[in-house]
């Protein structure tokens, strides 16, 4: 099983590769896009600058480094576009191809159709934002040239097994572990994660740059402050983390998500199930948060290393929990696949 990890900031690339990522995925928001759409309508599902590479130069260098290490780099274009955005997305594909990136994570049927007609030899992977819950939808996308399906994080293991039994054998399947578990259905959710209305001034998305700069030039950034910023970042910029009050009820408070769900989501035990089901890729989520992805990759690498065909599920889960013990608290709320 291969590990796909997010590349959010260019300077992290070598660490991610060394840690054992088999492929990297990233988004790109350059100056032109930021000026056109700010954080309200970007070309991938992560609207913040810190979740994306920020220039074609960075993309080119990333493609060169991954290429030298024999690792595919996947560009996320997993939003839904109006005509103007589609033109921007196609331009970004052309730029990516010129940089040597030929694999794209997509969700818009219009974009898939356009890419299929315009560019030969590119690879299209279907993002979880395409909200695929049945084999008929997979058939439709496969007919349009998609060769890998990233399963939605709301699917249970039983549903994944059922889907896997119904879809064509040639399709690769990718499933999520770690980070960014959300109560709402990605792909059907209209909440804006970005700081809507911002035209480019200081906003949440720039906090990570401050942290990075502090680490680079001062040498460290206190962990508890990082944690605070992380929580603040998620809980203030993601409206799905807001707490609501019920009308006509003194005690009625409703919180759909907390920053916890985004920061500590797991699913590592289910790597065993994925292995048995023939899931080809494990996707480490986490483009919208600040987390140590190097540690995450090492963790997943060590746990996938337990899979040798002989190990029983019970033993696997026990060892996996031991390995992850210090890093992840085991709680159903944090488990992607707690529904079974």
């Amino acid at each position: 099983m291969k590990i796909a990890a997010p590349l959010n900031r260019f300077h992290e690339i070598e660490g991610l590769i060394k840690a054992g990522a088999d492929e990297l995925y990233c988004g790109l928001i350059d100056r032109t896009q930021w000026q056109a759409y700010a954080s309200s309508a970007c070309l991938n599902r992560r609207e913040n600058l810190f979740s994306n590479l920020n220039s074609q130069k960075e993309l080119k260098q990333a493609a060169r480094i991954t290429g030298e290490n024999g690792i595919p780099l996947i560009l996320a274009l997993n939003e839904f576009y109006n005509q103007d955005q589609l033109i921007s997305a196609l331009r970004q594909v052309e730029e990516a191809l010129s940089c040597g990136v030929d694999t794209f994570l997509v969700s818009d049927l219009g974009l898939i159709s356009a890419l299929r007609g315009k560019f030969k030899g590119i690879k299209l992977y279907l993002s979880s934002c395409a909200t695929v819950f049945n084999s008929q939808a997979i058939k439709l996308y496969a007919g349009l040239g998609v060769t890998r399906i990233v399963l939605h994080r709301h699917l249970s293991i039983k549903e994944i097994a059922s889907l896997k039994s119904l879809i064509p054998g040639g399709l690769a399947i990718e499933a999520f572990v770690l980070n960014e578990k959300c109560f709402n259905l990605d792909g059907f959710c209209s909440f804006q994660h970005g700081n809507t209305g911002n035209k480019g001034g200081l906003n949440f998305s720039q906090i990570p740059f401050l942290i990075w700069a502090a680490r680079k030039y001062v040498g460290f950034f206190p962990k508890n402050i990082l944690q605070f910023i992380n929580n603040y970042l998620v809980s203030k910029s993601h409206p799905c983390c807001y707490t609501f009050r019920e009308r006509g009820s003194s005690a009625g408070k409703i919180t759909f998500n907390t920053a916890d769900h985004f920061l500590y989501a797991c699913g590592l035990c289910n790597i065993y199930d994925f292995y048995k089901l023939g899931v080809s890729h494990i996707k480490i989520a986490g483009r919208s948060i600040l987390t140590d992805q190097i540690k995450n990759i090492r963790l997943v690498k060590e746990i996938t290393g337990l899979l040798d065909g002989q190990i029983q599920r019970e033993d696997f889960v026990k060892i996996a929990r031991n390995i992850a013990g210090s890093a992840k608290k085991c709680r159903p709320l944090h488990c992607f696949y707690s529904a079974g």
Binding site: A36, A38, S40, A41, F80, N82, Q83, Q85, L109, G110
Partner: peptide, 23 residues
Amino acid sequence: ASIGSLPIGAKKRVKGIGLNKFL
């Protein structure tokens, strides 16, 4: 509430319905 401060491209997107010619 924030549409007034959005750049033109974003304004067009948030008032539009997110369907392109190919779709």
